[in-house]
Design a protein around this nucleic acid. Structure first.
Lengths: 126, 126
DNA sequence: CCCGTACTACGATGACTATCGCACGAGCAC
DNA sequence: GTGCTCGTGCGATAGTCATCGTAGTACGGG
């Protein structure tokens, strides 16, 4: 088939976009954030990101699911405004959008993180 | 099939239980609470319950959905430990489980309520 | 005793979602 | 260049969920 070449005509849906779509700060909705945080896998990711307080690549966070599913969860977190994703070579770095979330919903993220940790302690038999 | 009669033998699944099943305090899970709160209709109910700081009957809370759907949402809120439901004659009273939620997840409910109000103000053109 | 009000239960349905496997594209190392 | 690793996209599938309509049950009042 010759060179695929991607002539750049179909700008609407680029096959592999080098820049990822994020909601602006004032596009972030509380229900969406709560929904994103309501999944155990995603809550786990968010907790880890908050713990290291730095960007992590998708493969740095170990989840008991396949790669495709991991990609899916990271996408949900990004599209709902919880994390920010940027390319860095072959890796994709993920960082918590603490500034935006704290500005929109003061204290919410911290209370959720505290609640998650407290619950984990409680369920661990102590 | 003759008179329904409900002879009391099948205690496992009573047709119309006068007492409703609620999760105990230590049965309440963070993910479930977040999931319950992530729905616009249910968040609306919770906000109203918090605002009046008293028990409301199911029909006191006006939602743009049918009765069946309203029942469904109240059930989800109860089964996830967000509200407490008690019968009172033909009416069913609903009250927020503030004590339990605050004990398990300190500050979480308040931050969510604040965030919801702040977002409403923001979306209403401010 | 009959009726109205309040709520529930039972499908049914359409939408969304979490999961997988597989094949592909993009960059890095040699 | 060739190959390796990382991540994406695309079905497919099974499960959950929000919604409805209809029919039913419980309680209180005339």
């Amino acid at each position: 088939m010759g060179s695929p070449g991607r002539s750049g005509a179909d700008v609407t849906t680029v096959t592999s976009p080098r820049v990822l779509a994020h909601p602006a700060r004032d596009e972030i909705r509380l229900e969406d954030v709560l929904h994103a945080l309501a999944d155990p896998m995603r809550l786990r990711v968010v907790r880890e990101l908050a713990a290291v307080d730095a960007d992590l690549s998708c493969s740095d966070v170990e989840l008991p699911v396949t790669k495709s599913t991991t990609t899916h969860h990271f996408r949900v977190l990004r599209e709902n405004g919880v994390i920010r994703q940027t390319y860095r070579g072959t890796a994709k770095m993920n960082g918590l959008r603490r500034d935006d979330l704290d500005a929109l919903f003061p204290g919410l993220l911290d209370r959720v993180l505290e609640a998650a940790q407290s619950q984990e302690r409680r369920l661990a038999g102590r």
